[in-house]
Design a protein around this nucleic acid. Structure first.
Length: 296
DNA sequence: GGAATAACCTGGATGC
DNA sequence: TGCATCCAGGTTATTC
């Protein structure tokens, strides 16, 4: 599933192809891919055609392409199965392709950016850019701006401007489970079910431990493990369990080979040999080692 | 305001 | 072989 490392791989793959490119045409093949753009397909197309792209920027799991004029941006959220694929301008349609952008780049010529999404939880939109506090709004641009739909999303753990002290304090004020806190994108962004389980295992913290039950030192250690897991996944091209996550060229990542607990219910923990447990957790699953990760 | 939960959605896997 | 059911999970609206 696309979490921070997967979205960053997509962003870094798109950036050289779309920066300074002009959008010549837009094909909306399925309006369900525009749930974030309430004004509909015709408005979406009108706001994009003829515009030049400034950069490719990411905060957490949100990706956006600021448009010339610096007033608005094309935003993308990949949901659970969204893909942004770079193709030749006349390439055949992808399976589950919902939107295609035709672009013309000064150096690379005519290309297509295909947004494909099997489960249709992902969406594109054109959204106004708003000022954000101090530092750059996201990775990939120096501008202190974010799309209005991203304004409530916290900075991610790899963002140099991430406020570690504020995060630790916020965690220790909360009575809910630490895993739920890690998945709260308004506190820390970019973490999904896979990396939450992996970071908690690495930090030896039970996913159902309450935030208020953790020491500042424990939260700091968890944050450190979050960063290590995200950086390692990024270095390995992200996690691909199936065909749902690929980079802009359609290639899978390798981090699935480094997974310690996620999806390994019933298999031995690599640290202590105990069997990894899988339990239901708010409409999804949590995986943890019952010996290494004691509940506090 | 914090916390919990349901709904959205498709296709692969599984069971009968 | 065909059909029904379960499961995966990020975000947001709703409810308490």
């Amino acid at each position: 599933m696309p979490e921070l490392p997967e979205v960053e791989v997509v962003r870094s793959g798109l950036a050289p192809a779309v920066t300074s490119a002009r959008i010549s045409a837009v094909d909306v093949l399925d309006e369900r891919a525009l749930t974030r753009h309430p004004l509909g397909a015709a408005d979406f197309v009108a706001r994009l055609e003829g515009r030049a792209v400034r950069a490719a920027v990411r905060r957490g799991k949100f990706l956006w392409l600021p448009l010339e004029g610096d007033d608005d941006a094309l935003i993308a959220h990949l949901g659970m199965s969204g893909q942004m694929l770079l193709r030749e301008s006349d390439a055949v349609r992808e399976r589950h392709e919902r939107i295609r952008l035709h672009i013309e780049h000064p150096q690379h010529g005519r290309l297509a950016v295909a947004f494909a999404d099997q489960r249709t939880f992902g969406s594109l939109a054109v959204d106004a850019l708003v000022a954000t506090e101090g530092a750059a709004g996201g990775f990939g641009s120096d501008l202190a701006q974010v799309p209005s739909q991203v304004a409530h999303i916290a900075r991610d753990a790899l963002d140099p401007a991430f406020d570690e002290r504020a995060f630790i304090a916020a965690v220790r004020r909360r009575s809910s489970a630490i895993k739920r806190i890690l998945l709260d994108q308004t506190l820390i962004s970019g973490i999904g079910n896979i990396y939450a389980d992996e970071a908690l295992w690495a930090a030896r913290i039970h996913p159902e431990s309450h935030g208020a039950a953790l020491s500042a030192q424990a939260v700091r250690r968890l944050l450190s493990e979050v960063r290590l897991v995200l950086e390692k996944a990024l270095a390995e091209g992200g996690t691909s369990f199936d065909a749902q996550y690929v980079n802009v060229n359609g290639q899978a990542g390798y981090f699935a080979r480094s997974i310690e607990v996620y999806g390994r219910g019933g298999k031995p923990c690599s640290r202590c040999g105990s069997l990894i447990k899988r339990v239901a957790f708010t409409n999804r699953s949590s995986h943890f080692c019952p010996v290494c990760q004691r509940k506090r």
